[in-house]
Design a protein around this nucleic acid. Structure first.
Lengths: 268, 268
DNA sequence: CGCCGTGTTGAAGTGCATCAAGCCATGTGG
DNA sequence: CCACATGGCTTGATGCACTTCAACACGGCG
């Protein structure tokens, strides 16, 4: 069981949605976790599991997937810095499979830790609640996406969302990021067939909007992508709707982790 | 500002997901609220509003609707007994329009009330958190519904969900309930065109599975409906996945509101 | 009365699924 | 080093579930 040093992205994410005190940062620095590694398409949890830890994603991508019958639907995807199953602190049973999209590194953090910091710090309790609400907001937004957009717009929207979420934890500065998906995964996320996913990606390539290789996505024309997707950032953050977008416009400004001096390597 | 007597369905819903103490029931009985009435298709909130109250639905149906551009997608629907915007206690800004599907009666409950009872009772705090999680679970389930089912299954699933949720607050015992939707609303919920919604309803009628009139839905063949929908109740409750379904099977058992002696009419 | 919202029906068009085949890169064992 | 398998990507042909457009019927209401 280690503590602290690898949770920076999580802390910076929290700091971006709530005013944290130095004491809060200190508490977060003591976060205990056990590191695990998973290969692409491996399941971390199965529907019905009752984990006693939360899963903090450190590297790679995870998704929640509902494999009803033989048909699968990806419900949400997660980027480094996300605690993907925060709800299990309150209700431990999981309702879907948690699957690695790529090779991943995760840290398992005991539920008790989150209960403790919630009890100790009102601001942290608030911040964790906000995380919950943002999560919910993303789900609802994805309903709108599946329900009201064409396949091209869905794919574009998904790329936009991942881009912005990576930005929020300090990655993807040059509009490039490691591709989370095989084209079949993309299809499962956007509720289209794998064949059509391929044709949709080709269309985006043809319009010179992005490059999509097996390992990397590079966005060549961000404004066009946003336009096709009908993408708005407001559902991803809560304080200042314009902050993330304006940051994405000018890729220079670099104040993502305000006052980050993590007290690293303290024992748990 | 009144208090107490009309919140029975909310209390029984809470009692079904957590063990409430007599003190908790007492606290809930003191819930202050202001009653309002809305007509069908009237908006209670618009995107961006910052209410200082939560909205407790007493009669009728409400929905959250995203009216991006001119296209509208219904994100979730609510039945009597639901607090539809519990998240505004934590983050006041609403991200979609709250719209009446039918004529409705709602009670507005100040955020401060929920903050108080959360501070006073750990079990209530827990119960409210669970409500939040069930809400989230419904959203995710609706993603699966839109993403992976045919239009017939979507409509069937929606009817199943409403049926079971009404049961949980003691309504619809005879597989009949007031219809929440015009066929256009149904279309907006299921992400299909109004014309196709009509044909889908006709198909369900043709198979003798339900009667769907402007004012009432009667389910004639519940097992068939469940089969078409691929409906499972597990995402709607948290404690005992089978309770609601078995209750729905035998419409006799009637212990929905354990120890309900609401201390009515106390001043706020 | 005439209007408007809702439900219904038919005909034509299309976005996407499905099936099927072939391509390429990577890995593996002989 | 080749033989072969495997998983991901690509492409074409065909079909269907659903959309769109257009018209009409019905009832409630000013």
């Amino acid at each position: 069981m280690q503590a602290g040093f690898a949770s920076n992205k999580f802390v910076s994410h929290l700091a971006s949605i709530a005013k944290l005190t130095p004491d809060d940062i200190e508490l977060l620095g003591r976060m205990p976790f056990t590191i695990s590694y998973y290969g692409a398409h491996e399941d971390l949890y199965q529907k019905g599991d009752r984990p006693s830890c939360c899963c903090l994603l450190l590297q790679g991508y995870l998704c929640w997937v509902d494999s009803e019958l033989d048909w699968r639907q990806i419900i949400s995807i997660h980027v480094p810095g996300d605690v993907v199953d925060f709800h299990t602190v309150i209700s431990p049973v999981v309702r879907a499979n948690l699957r690695a999209l790529t090779a991943t590194v995760v840290g398992f953090v005991p539920h008790s830790y989150f209960r403790e910091i919630s009890a100790l710090s009102p601001t942290l309790r608030q911040a964790l609640s906000l995380l919950h609400i943002i999560e919910d907001s993303r789900s609802r937004n994805w309903i709108v996406n599946l329900g009201s957009r064409s396949s091209l717009a869905r794919v574009a929207h998904l790329v936009c969302e991942i881009m912005i979420r990576l930005r929020a934890v300090g990655e993807g500065r040059d509009y490039c990021f490691p591709c989370p998906f095989t084209q079949s995964d993309l299809a499962a996320a956007c509720a289209i067939s794998p064949v059509h996913a391929n044709r949709t990606v080709q269309e985006l390539r043809r319009r010179n909007i992005l490059e999509w290789r097996t390992r990397t996505i590079s966005i060549r024309d961000w404004p066009a992508l946003v336009r096709i997707a009908g993408f708005k950032t407001d559902y991803l953050s809560l304080q200042d709707p314009e902050a993330l977008l304006s940051d994405a416009r000018s890729a220079e400004t670099t104040q993502h982790t305000p006052a980050m001096t993590p007290s690293r390597m303290s024992a748990s």
